[in-house]
Each structure stands twice: as C-alpha cells, then as structure tokens.
Nucleic acid binder design. Sequence first.
DNA 1: AAATAATTTAATCAATTGATTAAATTATTT
DNA 2: AAATAATTTAATCAATTGATTAAATTATTT
Lengths: 204, 204
Amino acid sequence: MAKKKTIEADLSTQEKIKEAARKVFTQKGYAATRTRDIAEEAGINLALLNYYFRSKEGLFEIVMVEKLQQLFGTIVPILNDEGTTLEKKLELVVLCYIDMLTAHPDLPIFVLSEIRVDPERFSQRIQAGKLLREAYFLKQLKERRPDLHPLHFVMNLVGMTLFPFVGKPIFQAIGNLPAKDYAVLMEERKALIPKWVQAILKTK
Amino acid sequence: MAKKKTIEADLSTQEKIKEAARKVFTQKGYAATRTRDIAEEAGINLALLNYYFRSKEGLFEIVMVEKLQQLFGTIVPILNDEGTTLEKKLELVVLCYIDMLTAHPDLPIFVLSEIRVDPERFSQRIQAGKLLREAYFLKQLKERRPDLHPLHFVMNLVGMTLFPFVGKPIFQAIGNLPAKDYAVLMEERKALIPKWVQAILKTK
DNA sequence: AAATAATTTAATCAATTGATTAAATTATTT
DNA sequence: AAATAATTTAATCAATTGATTAAATTATTT
C-alpha cells in the first residue's frame, strides 16, 4: 500500500480537480460544462478526472452539496441563536450574506439554476427547512407579527439581500454603473436592509 | 411561388416550432436543450427545425428576445406614465408582475441564467436602461428620497416581487408549503409589497 | 533492490448531437 | 394538366463528449 505520499498526492490532485470543478460548474452550469473544461482548468489529463471521481455527475454532486451548504448553511446558526434579538439577527444575516456574496457573486444564480433542473432532488437537501421551522428566529418573528406568514419576511429579507447579486448584470445595465460603484451600493445595503426590514415589521 | 397556403402552413409549422422552443428552452436552458427535444415537443421532423430556423442558436436568439421583452418590457410604460403618482406606479408594477409571473413562473430564472452565460451580449439589449433612466418614475423617486440611490428602491421592489418566484422551490421547501398555499402567499403580496416599499420610502 | 500498489498518460470508444443532403410529397402557378 | 415552388422526411455526417483501457511511470512496501 502506498500511504503517506499517496495520500498527499491524492489530496493534491484530487483537490485540484475539485477546485477546477467548483469554478467551471459555478460559472457555466452543469449542462454547459464539459469534463474537458474541468480537466484543462485543473491542468490534468481527462482520464484522471474519471479516476478520482467516477463521473461528471459524481463530481457535480460533490460540488453541489458544498454549494448548497455555502448558500444556506451559513445563516442557520445565526437564526438559531437564542441570545440575540430579532433586530440583531437581521443585521448579522445581512452582513454575513453580503460579505459572502461579494466573495462569491455567482453562487446564488448557480444554485438556483441547478435546483430548477430538478427541484425535488435538491430541495430536500436543504435541511434549512427543518432548521428554519424550528429556529428561534421564527418564534421571535411570530411574536412580533402573528398576523403575517413568516415566509413573507424571509422572502423580503433574502430578496433584498440576495437578488441584487442574482440580477447584477441587469441592475448594472439599467443603472449604467461600473462594477466599482455597484460594489459601493452593496456595501451601503449592509446597513440599509436591516432598517428597511424593521420598517416592514412595523407596518400597520 | 407558393403563396397563400404556403404562408399559412409556414406560420403554422413555424409557430409550432417556436412554441416548442419557448417551452423547452425556458424549462431546461440553452445548453441542456437538444434540438431533438424541441422537434419532438413540436411534433415535427428534426430537419424541419433547421429548414425554418437556420440553427439552434438562431432559434434561441428569437426566443430570448421575446423573453427579455416579456420580463422587462411590460413595466416600462407603467413607470413612464406621467399621470400616475409614485404610489400608484408601485401598486401597478407589483400587480402586473405577480400576475405575469404566476402565469410564467420560470421566466425570470431562465432569463437570469442565460444572461449569466454572456452578460455583455444581453445586458445591452435591455433598453430598460435608457427607458428607466429617463422614466418619470425616476424623477418622482428622486424628489421623494434624494439621499438614496434610486437603484436601491428598484432592487427592493424587484427583489421582493420577483425573487419569490426565482426561489420558489427553496421557499416552498423551507416553509413546507404545498403549491396551492404558495400561490396564496403570492396573491397576498400583491397588496403587501406596495405598502412595504412605501414604508421603506419613509424610513429615517 | 525487488515487488507491489498507486498514479498518470495516450489512444480509443460509443453515444450524442447539431446540421445537411437528396429524394419524396404537397401545394401553387401557369 | 403540366410545371414549378415549397414543404417534409429518412438517411447520413462530422464533431463533440463522457468514459474506458492498456501501458507507462512513479511512489511505497517488503
């Protein structure tokens, strides 16, 4: 058995492929990605991809699980924290999301596109379902506004935070903004969105 | 020249193909769509697709232009109307959008996905840029809140309205809602979003 | 050092896929 | 009705693409 050095090489080559797969899949989506694109990006022979991962599908599966976690997993601990007020949670979620999305702008459109292909397959995987339904956040929301479905607030919060990244090319076009200025708007939204959501909470 | 009957048959077969292309492209995206899928959906021979339209790309181009118009063109006349208040415009845009999206739920995710593939190519086509910058809506917005970039409000309005359709599978999963109940929420939002956006306009 | 195991490569497959061609059919014009 | 033009089909191509195979190379163990 080749062990020590083997595992190192393993991790290295395997990780190179995974990293390339993350990049190419996220950029072009599953269908438009050719395994040759990934191999080239990773700087390896095409056959190696099938040696380490069984198939394109297999590699995609691994990347997708990671990306789902990245997009949905991060906010769960924030929403579940029993030591923070509703207001604080809103601030933290917005801050955390905008920072993450600034670093990975095409994460949400990638995940949403792939979910569309097979909603059943991926929707279950988002344990955010269970986690959100049991979240302390939900209790706080219901106390504040028992008259409205909590999902309305989640839609507003996520819509205002995430959508500017999903629709970035469009908003940039209609606003005629260079990338730099767009980034400034995103920064501004870190402080603005929590205020807006709180204004929504106080409506009639 | 075969004219009368020719044109009728032309429109009929051609339109069958276009209709099939609209459906399949919108559902699966460009890359995942095979011309054979479209031919089958249209109930015609594959060669006919290339007889009427020069290529997959050509057919897609036609569909995409339609869809861009459908998604962005509809709101322009509403926003440009000099005879309505800002409040009325908000109401009308939300109403119009939610009705349209209820009828064509996968329109926005389709358009956004394809724009991602080649942002330059499609972003220019959205004359909404020029139209929004010159819109009466913008003037009204600037009067009301000169301190904030108008794009913030557009992002909030569109985010709250459109995003629940883009993220439908996810919101349904985390809310554990059947399709029927989800539709009810969308109906509720017709009246709620304008109020919320107005609350945002009044902040601080 | 020899044997063994793991990794990498070049070559090749078979299936898929967008597109074309030539012939057949149908409609229109003269 | 004959000639012509438009439409449709079956068959076929060539390129692409995910995957495999057998051989070569490199690392590890005995």
